[in-house]
């Protein structure tokens, strides 16, 4: 039965995005195997350099950090929305669970799947809310992706031989202002 582990602290927010950091102790002697597992993770789709397509579409970035001579592990990310509202979703939908099982098998307190309540308590127990958090751009991942698509399209327009003419209409002025560099 799912125990109510109390309301998790939701993490600091900047605009629509909230920070999410977990800290774990690595099981005795598992430092090397965890490092190997993370190296392997780095080669999987989404984590492969240049992929930009993580399984969870609503996180901006994610990192796993081994520290204190590989005796501790941090997982640090930024999520669009209040992550506490999505706790159950993370642990019932595929990508997170699969990832967790591979990585967190190497840390203390993880008793393995499929006990959802235990996994949830384990994660909440590891969460530490940031003392300070800032972002350098506003907006959700979805908006950033849209902005990138729009900019790519704009650059394509600018590359057209008649771009200046096409942007000559008064309605185009805001775009023309962005066209000069």
């Amino acid at each position: 039965m799912t125990e109510d582990t109390g309301t998790p602290t939701p993490g600091l927010e900047v605009g629509p995005t909230s920070e999410f950091s977990l800290f774990f102790r690595v099981l005795d002697g598992q430092g090397p195997s965890l490092r190997a597992a993370l190296l392997e993770l780095q080669g999987t789709p989404g984590y492969r350099p240049g992929d930009y397509g993580m399984a969870i579409k609503t996180i901006h970035e994610a990192r796993f950090v081994l520290f204190d001579d590989d005796t501790r592990l941090a997982f640090i990310t930024s999520f669009d929305g209040p992550w506490d509202a999505y706790m159950e979703d993370f642990f019932t939908s595929g990508p997170t669970l699969a990832l967790f099982d591979v990585i967190f098998g190497h840390v203390e307190g993880y008793d393995g799947l499929p006990d959802l309540a235990a996994v949830r308590a384990f994660v909440l127990g590891a969460e530490q809310t940031a003392a300070a958090y800032a972002r350098n751009y506003p907006g959700t991942v979805k908006e950033i992706r849209k902005a990138q698509r729009v900019n790519a399209a704009f650059q394509q327009v600018l590359d057209h031989p008649q771009a200046a003419e096409a942007l000559g209409h008064p309605a185009m002025q805001p775009l023309l202002d962005e066209a000069a560099d």
Binding site: M54, A55, I56, K57, T58, I59, F79, Y86, E88, D89, F90, T92, S93, G94, P95, T96
Partner: peptide, 10 residues
């Protein structure tokens, strides 16, 4: 469905 972070059935 392909967001990876939300299960509509919940």
């Amino acid at each position: 469905d392909d967001e990876g972070s939300v299960d509509v059935r919940l």
